[in-house]
Design a protein around this nucleic acid. Structure first.
Lengths: 213, 213
DNA sequence: TTCGCCATGTAATAGGTTACATGATTGC
DNA sequence: GCAATCATGTAACCTATTACATGGCGAA
């Protein structure tokens, strides 16, 4: 994640220069606090775990450091309990809102990067054995089917809440992705491509023999 | 990327304990060197740029450090030119092959994480203005269409090479993903969901008025 | 033969993750 | 009132990225 300074994209009168370098993580925190009104780091953690966390995860440690940093720069306001757990509660400031608005107004974003260990293994699968590919594909299939079911359940839950239209939209992209993944890994599991290396590495297999050169 | 020790998954007789902690990056380097036979860091860089780099990018600095580290652990062998550029050329060792094989034989991998700035913005789009969403979606649409075209071109080029069956399979997942993305962002651009916040933040817009509550 | 880009490499920094550690609250 | 778990926080480590720096090589 590159931390870079933000340059105003449009001349819509909302050009804005933030006092500190803001990373995607910063905006994520700003956005969540803005949505919730008030939030402790733990609140953020919970909010993330079943929404953004599905496509943008990070450790809870960041949820203590980043808000503090944003508060120091005046984008958030921090309030601390004097007793008990001495919780820190954050709210967004006018400055924070401006930073968030400027970010949202900037349409430029690089493409996604899908860091998928399963795909990485598949890339090199020709170096291994045919049976390995099949097991990999079956495992991935299982995982993606489970995720798909989870997303569908969440989608139903969100159906009523109008204020959740955009979170729900991202969920729909997740659904598209999981459905594509299920189809993809199913196809690999059913009929893994042949590799010149396979023949040398193992004996007979039940199917797909004909394709091996 | 967590660097964790590898635990042998199956009792197929190929259990293997690597001498150092191996991260996904390590396997990526091992795999590429294995595929190419011999490679300099620059060779790796080029190989990655139009294949794995599309879903698993990293900086060229890693391609100098990681191979050296693997060589120190005996998984790669390093050969250095005495003159000229003093290039380092790496080849895989028997130990390296075993590590790679064990990794490929292990079907367990966590799910992918799609770090997509565009989706992150979309998640919070309800806090901004309607026009922002439209511009974001149009920009994402443009990017994904371009990527889709690029993948299709590569796919044609790989059609002949049998040894590229698995790299090509990963490319097909990329195609599925890009097609889904194009459809998704097209839909958002055409008809962005309403947000309670929109009405307050701006005046009239050409369409979608009816939905705003 | 000189200029500019390609290729190679290193160092410093920033970022994030893991691990550790402790206090609060809840349930029994 | 004790144990278990939830909640909160910090620190050290590790990784990866950015920036810097230089030498070789090809083109004009």
């Amino acid at each position: 994640m590159s931390t870079r300074n933000f340059s105003p994209p449009t001349d819509d009168g909302r050009a804005f220069e933030p006092p500190i370098a803001l990373s995607p993580t910063s905006y994520l925190v700003l956005g969540l606090v803005a949505r919730q009104g008030r939030a402790t780091p733990y609140d953020l953690k919970r909010a993330i775990s079943h929404s953004i966390g599905n496509f943008w995860s990070f450790s809870h440690a960041q949820l203590y450091e980043e808000p503090a940093r944003l508060a120091a720069a005046g984008l958030l306001q921090e309030e601390r309990e004097e007793e008990g757990r001495r919780r820190r509660t954050f709210t967004i400031t006018a400055l924070g809102r401006r930073a968030l608005a400027a970010w949202l107004a900037d349409p430029s974003s690089e493409l996604a990067e899908i860091r998928d260990l399963g795909l990485l293994k598949l890339f090199f699968a020709g170096l291994g054995r045919r049976a390995d590919v099949v097991r990999l594909a079956q495992e991935q299939l299982r995982l993606h089917q489970a995720k798909l079911a989870e997303y569908e359940a969440i989608d139903h839950m969100l159906a009523d809440h109008e204020s959740e239209a955009y979170p729900r939209a991202t969920l729909h992209m997740g659904l598209l992705y999981e459905r594509a993944s299920v189809a993809f890994w199913q196809a690999i599991a059913d009929d893994p491509p042949a590799s010149p290396h396979f023949a040398a590495a193992e004996g007979t297999t039940e199917k797909g023999q004909a394709e091996q050169g």
